[in-house]
Design a protein around this nucleic acid. Structure first.
Lengths: 139, 139
DNA sequence: CACCTCCTACGATAAGCGTCGTAGTACGGC
DNA sequence: GCCGTACTACGACGCTTATCGTAGGAGGTG
């Protein structure tokens, strides 16, 4: 059941056609992380993943930064282990794609996969989050 | 901290301009339920409410039936008390509006409020749920 | 090689959630 | 007034979750 980065149903946000990437070829050899196959992504799990404030923050950061982001670049008001935990939940729900790059673990949204399964959903959630933030800020 | 059915920021899906409603005037006198004010609805709570399979089912049923629906008309594979619990979670998250009507408690989506706060979100979630159902059915 | 950084795994804890059954209240009909 | 229907409140149970700290591995740098 599922082995590595999506190659089956879609290269996800992967294929890393972005700069910032190393010479390539060796995205970190060994260490490969389990990602759900695109077809195995479940709406309830995605919603659950997005329902947590910490994780929603992460997703918004990832959406804002158009390229891959290291775990440590998304500051959360919780411990390192808890942060790791949240990233894992997001990955296992199929929301993000994680890949080792040197000592860092890079994260990216699986926009393509999510949009294919649930058209427009992610955008609406992000827009809703922005809207709510503005609304609450203007108090 | 909020008192009754929305009248403050918007009559929600209420105002019951639908048939099926009794002569009106006495929608059940006493028993009034607490609903969050529109401005108090939080995205995280809405997502959390929608993330549960049971509750998502309820919301889909409510969206399908364009009018108010009694709790007992949405059959769930769980006990009565659990059903009550789920309806309460939905109400407290601001997703549905509940009103006593005789011995029944009628439920309706707070579409207007949700669309005002999070434009298009509910529709996308419903569409995503439909899409996933078809996708999984066609296995 | 030593060392530092980044991230992980593990165990612990406390809180939350979904589920149930039972007992009970409000309302309408007889 | 009595009874049935519809829903609720409460307490219990077990599972999941969010959080932490500590210990440790993988990989770059010197």
């Amino acid at each position: 059941m599922v082995f590595m980065t999506p190659s089956a149903t879609g290269p996800a946000t992967a294929a890393r056609p972005d700069p910032a990437a190393p010479p390539d070829g060796a995205p970190a050899a060994g260490r490969v992380l389990d990602h759900p196959d695109t077809a195995d992504i479940r709406l309830e799990e995605v919603l659950h993943a997005l329902a947590d404030p910490m994780r929603l923050t992460v997703v918004r950061e990832l959406a804002a930064a158009r390229c891959e982001v290291a775990c440590s670049e998304v500051p959360l008001p919780v411990s390192k282990s808890t942060t790791t935990h949240h990233f894992r939940v997001l990955r296992e729900a199929g929301v993000i794609c994680q890949v080792y790059r040197g000592t860092s673990k890079m994260n990216a949204l699986r926009r393509a996969d999510l949009d294919a399964l649930f058209p427009g959903l992610l955008d609406r959630v992000l827009a809703a989050a922005d809207a709510q933030e503005s609304r609450l800020a203007g108090t």
